[in-house]
């Protein structure tokens, strides 16, 4: 599904070149559940953003489902991730002005689905996540765990093959965190590929594969 070959990313700071990613070689198969670990500043989020096509890189090859991402234009890239990737953030990043229902509906709006189809899909997801009763509330009226649930629902509603989660439990207490991780495990079982960035060893155990980063390099994988 995803092949990264010799990916380099850097920024120039004065005369020095600071590497954010160095020589990343990575292959992720469909249906995997990968955890990216490492200390702060090791490049975890950067790597995730590169995979999500939100951020570019300076050298190397990236193939996503056979498409050479390094050769695609901005527009094509956004069309690609719009279709195949769902994002989950540590700070949930729900849109404050929209209700739970509308938040979940948003990605579908951008995909030009028919109104009836949108309704059916959002209803399905609300049902599945057990948040039907909360559909008319605004994000500020929900607890952190509930907000993250909505965030995941929003990521899933467009039926992506890949979920990218950047510390999805970082802002949650341990019980809420566990529930979210259980949910991920369940989704993975149903065939969704998941890549998560995490600090916690425990969360990493939910995955099938762990990649450890240090200073922008992969130092360990198991």
């Amino acid at each position: 599904m995803i092949q990264l070959e010799k990916i380099f990313k850097w920024v120039n700071s004065g005369a020095n070149r600071v590497f954010l990613l160095q020589d990343i070689n990575l292959e992720i198969e469909k249906g995997e559940f990968v955890s990216i670990m490492g200390p702060s500043g090791s490049g975890k989020s950067t790597l995730l953003n590169v995979i999500g096509m939100l951020d570019g890189f300076d050298e190397g090859k990236y193939t996503f489902q056979g498409e050479p991402v390094h050769q695609l234009k901005e527009k094509q890239k956004s069309a690609l991730y719009k279709k195949h990737i769902g994002f989950v953030f540590q700070a949930y990043h729900l849109i404050d002005e929209l209700t739970v229902y509308e938040n979940i509906e948003t990605p579908l709006l951008y995909q030009d689905l028919k109104s009836s189809e949108r309704k059916a899909r959002v209803a399905d997801i609300l049902d599945r996540f057990n948040i039907v009763g909360k559909k008319d509330l605004f994000p500020a009226q929900l607890s952190g765990g509930q907000q993250q649930l909505v965030g995941i629902a929003r990521a899933l509603v467009a039926q992506p093959q890949l979920i990218l989660a950047d510390e999805p439990t970082g802002n949650l207490n341990s019980k809420q965190g566990e529930e979210i991780m259980e949910l991920f495990k369940q989704l993975n079982k149903e065939g969704v590929t998941i890549i998560q960035v995490t600090h916690s060893e425990k969360n990493a155990t939910y995955g099938s594969k762990v990649i450890e980063l240090l200073d922008g390099r992969i130092v360990n994988r198991h």
């Binding site: 991730y81 719009k82 994002f87 849109i95």
Partner: peptide, 16 residues
């Protein structure tokens, strides 16, 4: 900024 960014990540076009 964040809201705008999210909308973009969720697929909104420049015009929107």
């Amino acid at each position: 900024k964040q809201n705008i960014g999210i909308s973009k990540i969720l697929g909104s076009s420049k015009l929107e």
